[in-house]
Computed example of a mutant assay.
Amino acid sequence: MLSPLMPQLNREYIMRILKQLLETPSPSGFCTEVMNVVREEVEQLGYSLEITPKGNGIITIPGDSSRETLGISAHVDTLGAMVRSIKPDGMIRFTPVGGYAMQTVEGEYCLIHTRKGGIYEGTVLSTKPSVHVYSDVRDFKREEANMEIRIDEMVKSKEDVEKLGIGVGDFISWDARTRFLPSGWIKSRHLDDKAGVAAVFGLMEWLKREGKTPSRTIKLILSTYEEVGHGSAHIPPDITELIAVDMGAIGDDLSATERDVSICAKDSSGPYDYNMTSKLIDLAKREQISYAVDIYPHYGSDASAALKGGSSIRAALIGPGVHASHGMERTHADAVVNTAVLLLAYVMDEQ
């Protein structure tokens, strides 16, 4: 069913922003480039971006009343890795940034970003990469100690790699392998949470284009350390409600699909605010958008981080359904746009 608000949102704009974000490397702690992309787009919309000492971005949109401030968070940081050591044969041992299973990155192309601005390509492999050489390759455990990166340069030793400027602590980003299909399917790494960020931009674009003022002041928080657990651990003190916009998990006994907006009632940090969650469900029904209410036992969000950081807030969690999270992810354009619809309905609601 079609939401009355959906035709008002600029679907093409949301997809353009999503593509741009997905094409910009941003593992947790290495988000300067993606925040430059964010700043440019925010300023083109006529808003301003404040960068906190931590590197998070905050956009303030004044509201109609002096009611409590509403926070909306989404994270631009993604999974990735760092150089842990350089082996004598010129292979790189890496340490994960964020929580993922090693088998999800085996065979992946990657970029190694040096501290002097150099970028080198590589491929993630196990230390026993060939069935023609190792008899136990199929049963070989994929864990950090058994994984390495082959650099696409003429290197045969640790010294050769160091001459390229590569060193311990350099960031490694995964090839997103982004595909936007005519059917509306979007498959890519890092839809968690760049799909959520794109939905937030869809909200901002609508407010600016329509010249609308939200019912109360909004502070949009774009965090840069969510994948390592503390993205929005500190938020502006005037925020009393926070909606985290993040991906909705799919599988097992969960109800969400890749075309739904997921409304999370509880994750590993505990239940989300009852009244906020109930209001989001009611608005999803009112707007006639596809949604699902689920519980995620292996999940945390920026709202979780804010609560654990001591913020006295009400909090909720929504986002587009994403299949195979922290792996080769897939969602649908409808889920991303409908997430923006639900946000729009919430911020414009007068009650």
Rank of each mutant, 00 (worst) to 15 (best):
E226Y: 06
M348G: 00
T127R: 14
E227Q: 13
L280I: 08
P320C: 04
F94T: 13
V83Q: 08
M276R: 02
I218W: 01
D273V: 02
N338K: 05
L220A: 07
V261H: 02
I186H: 01
L22K: 03
P96H: 09
S268E: 15
R16C: 02
A198G: 05
E12C: 00
P214N: 10
E210F: 06
I166V: 14
H190L: 03
V97R: 09
Y296Q: 05
I14M: 11
V347C: 03
R259V: 08
A324N: 15
G98Q: 12
S262P: 00
K19Y: 06
D302M: 03
G117D: 12
L242P: 04
M328V: 09
T52R: 11
E108K: 14
S255Q: 13
E144S: 00
A316G: 12
K219V: 02
K54G: 14
D349L: 02
V124R: 04
I119E: 13
V42D: 11
V97Q: 06
G231E: 08
A256F: 01
R179M: 13
S301N: 07
E50M: 09
D192W: 01
S3N: 11
M348P: 06
E287A: 02
K128I: 01
G211Y: 11
L2E: 15
Y13R: 12
S269E: 12
G122M: 08
E40T: 14
P7C: 09
L307W: 04
R179I: 14
E258R: 07
K266G: 01
L307M: 15
D267A: 02
Q351G: 03
Q8E: 15
V133E: 14
S183D: 14
P62Y: 07
S26H: 13
V197A: 01
I14A: 02
K54S: 10
G107Q: 10
I51G: 06
S85F: 11
S73M: 09
D349E: 13
G327L: 04
G321F: 01
